[in-house]
Design a protein around this nucleic acid. Structure first.
Length: 646
RNA sequence: GCCGACAUAGCUCAGUGGUAGAGCACUUCCUUGGUAAGGAAGAGGUCGUGGGUUCAAGUCCCAUUGUUGGCUCCA
């Protein structure tokens, strides 16, 4: 009997019933067949040798398809497990999924130490097993058989996983001497794997629960070609060069001191300059957008946080209260600005005509983050939020939300962030009791967020159950040099605090109404934003932001006076310039300026000082030739404007 | 907080039980040089901190602080 197979290009081919994807690939070309890792039949990823029993849409998956890679790495996880079992008999296995780059396997080595020194041995074993070209065999099992197998093996983790599975849906996969509980699918055989690298080991709680046993998570990556592994490792090294912790030190932007304390960054002059430019930039945009700047203290009485509810929720895990000579008095370092802003709202009666009220503050807050969570500037214990709270009527939520999105997009555009995702965090529909506020108001605000995001055409992902307990939110996520995602801009709707602080406004109906509060921070925090900015631009800041926009390099000390004259002139035009007066040759000064990432270099010698010109060199681009000062400043100011994305 | 790794000069790093090293940076001198490293000399470290083992510890052991890869957390 014949069936029709529709390929992605729309072409339809006839095959006999029971044909496998691999057969189809072979019928197209042998070269293609050699690269087929798995297949997508009617949207479901399956083994390439799975018989196709009826008309179907077929996509052959190779290394170039995300699903092909995932299958390859999933199979590689089984290969890793096989190697580990061979080298460490008795190892128990948790789960071993593919991830964005590679895969991991959670293992329990029964206390046998496993570290970087052991990696090579495991890699060698993996490669040895690949040479056996063992096929991955799918073996359906009854639940009873499956339980018996892992009881015999003594693997309590797999037994626990089995408990959650339905009889009749259980499959084992076996390759070589290794058999694993697995839904599949897998690549045809281990021979496809040509290069393997164990990347690192880490502790990971079984089933992500910190109360349960900590397993050893082995991270690894494999490739179908040795060269691809080499390329990957090279890229990884390159990415590390953009690490904000490394560049922050090299460019003298910020530092940490053991004596000051963990997670408490010190901003050095150049970093502070940069940060100040960013603050001025946003303050200006916020004034235009109708925000009112406010200033509040760094501490607040404990009662403020009892009212807000934060004391109950976070009090124990925060910096502990500050005491005064009065025994009953306690103050907390502020972990957020919202309660203070609520009190500003309450300083006078508000009318519906006053809303929205947008209170903005660059507020420094302190949170006692778990020590293991601290990470450069992206996760610190003292940081400054570019915070604002918008108090508005319920019917204004959507419009305000949309305006905030516009502001965030303006910030991102001005700073060259093009690669971001907007994560919409909604409440868990299965567990509504975790959240406060009525269904009606949640539904309204969730749909307001979803609609605003859609209208603005944001690239979104939606996460159920990720909402804050007081309201849904939208976070702008940007990746760092190593691909880790960080939340930068955030917009959150809050029904809780207006309630707790008993905020009111008088409506057109002369009745009291509850305002809605929107928390928002386009940068998120100055610290994290600058960290991600450094990594995204690799330390080559947009010209408008660069702490040192240009350096003047006199050819010899004879031209020092002219260099200073140029500097003075540029400074009157608000150009941040310095002169390299060192007794070094010009080649050396240029090299140091290039390494120091100065956007522009002005070289001045005999010729320039006589003709009142400068020889312009741009970072990374080389010599641009000579210009007179006026021409240069014209060019420079248009370059500044261009760097702002205008 | 948990599992693992790491901590030596300002920076990057070498140093596997026998009196601390390199390159760069820094200081001084020579050199006044035209688009990515000129030359010479000098100074700089109680090897994160505290214990222990040893005739002897940067090196081995324990604790502690910090950093780091993950996990958990993230108002």
């Amino acid at each position: 009997m014949e069936i029709s197979i529709t390929l992605p290009d729309g072409s339809i081919r006839q095959y006999s019933k029971g044909v496998s994807s691999m057969d189809v690939a072979l019928s197209i070309s042998e070269g293609l067949a050699r690269n087929v890792l798995a297949a997508k039949i009617n949207g479901e990823v399956v083994e390439a040798n799975r018989p196709i029993l009826e008309d179907a849409n077929l996509q052959l998956l190779t290394w170039n398809d995300t699903d092909g890679k995932k299958t390859f790495w999933h199979s590689s996880a089984h290969l890793l497990a096989e190697a580990l079992e061979a080298l460490y008999p008795g190892t128990k296995f948790g789960i071993g999924p593919p991830i964005e780059n590679g895969f991991y396997y959670d293992i329990d080595l029964n206390g046998v130490p496993f570290g970087a020194d052991d990696f090579e041995k495991v890699e060698q074993k993996m490669l040895e097993l690949t040479r056996q070209k063992n096929s991955f065999n799918r073996i359906p099992k009854s639940k009873e058989e499956a339980l018996a197998y892992f009881q015999e093996k003594g693997d309590e983790y797999k037994l626990e996983l089995l408990e959650d599975l339905q009889d009749g849906s259980i499959t084992f996969y076996q390759q070589g001497n290794f058999t694993d509980l697995c839904r599949g699918p897998h690549i045809p055989d281990t021979g496809f794997i040509k290069a393997a690298k164990i990347l690192n080991v880490a502790g990971a709680y079984w089933r992500g629960d910190e109360k349960r046993k900590q397993m050893t998570r082995v991270y690894a990556i494999t490739f179908p070609k040795d060269k691809e592994l080499k390329d990957y490792l090279f890229l990884l090294e390159e990415a590390k060069k953009r690490d904000h912790r490394k560049l922050g030190k090299e460019l003298e932007l910020f530092a940490f001191s053991e004596r000051v304390g963990q997670g408490l960054p010190l901003w050095l002059p150049k970093g502070a300059m940069l940060r100040d430019r960013l603050e001025q930039f946003l303050k200006k945009a916020q004034v235009k957008a109708g925000y009112s700047p406010v200033v509040t203290p760094h501490i607040g009485s404990k009662q403020l946080y009892v009212t807000s509810g934060h004391y109950e929720k976070y009090g124990k895990d925060s910096f502990q209260p500050i005491r005064t000579p009065d025994e009953d008095e306690e103050f907390l370092l502020k972990p957020m600005n919202c309660p203070h802003h609520c009190e500003i709202y309450k300083t006078k009666p508000r009318s519906y005509r006053d809303l929205p009220l947008r209170l903005a503050e660059f507020g420094t807050v302190y949170r006692y983050e778990q020590s293991g969570e601290l990470h450069g500037l992206t996760r610190v214990r003292g940081f400054t939020q570019d915070d604002a709270h918008i108090f508005c009527r319920p019917d204004q939520v959507k419009e305000e939300f949309t305006k905030v999105i516009d502001l965030v997009l303006y910030v991102f555009r001005s700073l060259g962030f093009h690669d971001y995702t907007a994560q919409i965090s909604l409440r868990d529909p299965e567990n509504k009791t975790k959240y406060i506020g009525s269904d009606d108001i949640w539904e309204k605000s969730e749909s307001a967020i979803i609609e605003s995001a859609r209208e603005k055409d944001l690239p979104t992902v939606t996460e159920l159950g990720e909402a804050a307990f007081y309201g849904p939110k939208l976070d702008f996520m940007v990746k760092d040099a190593l691909g880790r995602k960080w939340q930068l801009g955030t917009i959150q709707v809050d029904y809780n605090l207006p309630e707790r602080f008993d905020l009111e406004f008088t409506g057109a109906d002369n009745q009291k109404h509850r305002p809605v509060m929107i928390h928002r921070a386009p940068f998120g925090s100055m610290e994290r934003f600058i960290a991600v900015l450094i990594e995204n631009c690799a330390g080559d800041f947009p010209l408008w932001l660069s702490p040192e926009q240009l350096v003047i390099l006199p050819i010899s000390e004879k031209f020092a006076a002219y260099a200073d004259e140029v500097k003075t002139h540029l400074e009157t035009l608000d150009i941040r310039a310095s002169v390299d007066h060192r007794d070094e040759k010009i080649g050396r000064k240029i090299r140091d300026a290039e390494v120091g990432k100065f956007p522009y270099m002005l070289i001045v010698g005999e010729k320039e000082s006589e003709t009142k010109t400068v020889s312009v060199r741009k970072h990374g681009q080389g010599d641009l030739g000579s210009l007179d000062l006026q021409e240069f400043t014209n060019m420079f100011s248009s370059a500044v404007a261009e760097s702002m994305g205008s």
